[in-house]
Amino acid sequence: MPKIIGRSLTEHRSEVRTRVFDALREELYERGFDAVTLSGVAAAAGVGRTSIYNHFPDKSSLLVAFVEHEAARYVEDLAEALDAAGTPVEQLAVYVQLQLRRLADFHLPPGPTLSSTLDPSAYRRIAAHADPLTRRLTEILEAGVAAGQMADEDPAVLVAMIGAALSARQIVDVPPPDVPAAIEAAVRVVLRSVGAG
């Protein structure tokens, strides 16, 4: 009989998912998605192979569940940070900082590679997590224009350009001590690009 972690089945499931996601995060950081295996994640998480297969039937479903978990957490953190910022310009700076910090810390294959790695429905589920971020960025830009703090350009164009810029791993693929300076340089460039520099 498999060992139950925690005091109840609900606690057990939650703890298994936490351990598995922590192990997967580490595996992605150290080895990349292509090298990840369910049995390797189970071993790193300290859970049985049967247990991980009960939660995630394959690598694709594990990745989707992990991204959904991380995205939900990130959207909450972003909302809290943006609400604490004052002006739309300050909010945009915070948005850029958090997006790039997340890119530096989060090691998934880039979009086109990910789309070829996952089946189409799994990729769509992961891609859908960008929707709240896109909406929030659009709101920031529209508020910036309304306040006269940003250039009156088409928000859809600005969102696409900023999104493309913030997905460029080269910005944060620098030695760890240089990451903060690289992020601040990117913030300045994005602010200038919307007429807020």
Rank of each mutant, 00 (worst) to 15 (best):
E68W: 10
Y123E: 15
A84G: 04
V89A: 06
P112A: 01
I126S: 04
E76I: 04
V75D: 14
S116I: 07
A72G: 07
A122E: 07
G86T: 02
A71M: 03
D119Q: 03
R125S: 11
G111D: 14
S121L: 15
T87D: 08
L92R: 00
R102H: 15
Y95P: 04
D77K: 13
P120N: 01
L103N: 09
R102A: 11
L92S: 00
E90L: 03
E76M: 04
A71C: 06
A122Y: 08
D119E: 05
V94S: 14
D77W: 12
L118C: 01
L108P: 01
S115G: 11
D77R: 15
D119S: 04
L118F: 01
A71F: 06
P88C: 05
F106N: 11
A81R: 10
L108V: 05
D105E: 12
S121V: 14
Y95L: 07
A72C: 02
Y123T: 10
I126P: 05
E90K: 02
D83T: 11
P109R: 04
P112E: 01
E70W: 02
L118G: 01
D83F: 08
L78W: 06
A71D: 08
R73W: 09
Y74G: 12
G86I: 00
E70V: 03
E76K: 13
L108S: 01
R102S: 15
E80D: 02
D83C: 08
A72L: 01
R125I: 05
Y74D: 11
Q91E: 07
G111P: 10
D83E: 14
P112M: 02
V96I: 06
Y95H: 07
F106L: 08
A122G: 09
